[in-house]
């Protein structure tokens, strides 16, 4: 039997990973879920390891999820957010990272507005690097927790139909999922206003672009709604929030086009009444809180697998 190991130094993107890598992370995460249900939610596995969460963009879910994951593995977790660090004094990313490196962390988890920032630092530090979101590029741990949630509800990926609806162009969650899902055998359809579609959809083989949400939702097993980034609304990508909600928002009527047992996902934070109606977000198809629970397990798995890799 082939020995299953995760042999990469860093987790920077889904793109470039093999199916086996994804399955190993998901299997490991599944085993980790049980720890969060124990009376004592902590194991000694990463005792003595230091994990730095370096967040240059705001985050509640991802940052706290990585922090909880690190702590449940007994690692020491330190959180640095750009707004309260030397970044506001003008320090460059590389200088910040070199200074952190001098304190000998084992793993650096980084979120940055610039595409490729995690790759840049991964090439320059001994610590293993986890991408927690780089610009509009990738958000691998989110895609992995989405995969785990889908697998729990649908058992396997082969032949599964998944619709991703919303601001595809600016969504790193969508990008990571558009790499991951076809790799596992799922059929992916995307739908968004034309102004929010990536220029090069041919970079995602196995992903079909649909003209309307109705076309995308027809008979799907999984619906992934993306957050409309209202802070980008000054760029007039769509006429109005109300019109977006009417044309692309997921409501009970649209959801009825999907399979009866379809699941609805959202990476959060949600704009209720915009991309998703409250009736759907809180309805029986919604697995949004499962995603959050799985986030901790997936991040424990990532830290565990990277934690054994030599510098």
């Amino acid at each position: 039997m082939k020995k299953r190991i995760f042999s990469r130094k860093d987790l920077l993107a889904i793109k470039g990973l093999h199916e086996d890598d994804l399955t190993l992370i998901l299997d490991t995460a599944e085993s980790f879920k049980e720890i969060s249900r124990r009376p004592i939610k902590k194991v000694p596995t990463l005792r003595g390891q230091t994990i730095i969460n370096l967040f240059y963009e705001p985050s509640t879910r991802t940052r706290s999820s990585f922090e909880i994951a690190a702590k449940r593995l007994s690692a020491d977790a330190i959180n640095i957010s750009a707004s309260t660090s030397s970044v506001v004094k003008g320090e460059t990313l590389l200088d910040t990272v070199k200074n952190l490196q001098a304190m000998a962390p084992d793993i650096i988890v980084i979120r940055h507005a610039c595409v490729g920032a995690p790759h840049l630092i991964a090439a320059r530090v001994d610590a293993r690097v986890v991408n927690a979101g780089d610009g509009a590029n990738e958000h691998p741990s989110q895609a992995l927790l989405d995969l785990l949630t889908i697998r729990e509800h649908k058992k396997n990926f082969a032949g599964l139909k998944v619709a991703i609806i919303g601001d595809i162009a600016h969504s790193r969650v969508a990008r990571s999922n558009m790499h991951a899902l076809p790799l596992l055998g799922a059929e992916v359809r995307v739908c968004s206003p034309p102004t929010m579609l990536p220029l090069r959809m041919d970079a995602f083989p196995g992903v079909r672009t649909c003209a309307s949400p109705e076309e995308a939702l027809e008979g799907v097993d999984v619906v992934m709604m993306l957050r409309i980034q209202l802070e980008r609304q000054d760029r007039t990508l769509f006429p109005s929030v109300n019109e977006y909600a009417r044309c692309y928002g997921l409501n009970v009527r649209r959801l009825a086009l999907a399979k009866k047992d379809a699941i609805v996902m959202h990476p959060g934070p949600m704009n209720r009444g915009v991309e998703i109606s409250s009736a759907v977000a809180d309805g029986k198809h919604s697995v949004i809180l499962d995603q959050v629970e799985n986030g901790v397990a997936v991040r424990m798995a990532i830290l565990y697998l990277l934690g054994g890799i030599a510098e």
């Binding site: 995760f6 042999s7 190993l24 299997d27 980790f32 596995t45 565990y304 934690g307 054994g308």
Partner: peptide
Amino acid sequence: LYRDDLSHGTHHPVLEK
């Protein structure tokens, strides 16, 4: 998860439930 020989430089073994 409780082994005393987990360290850097050894791939962590596959975790079962």
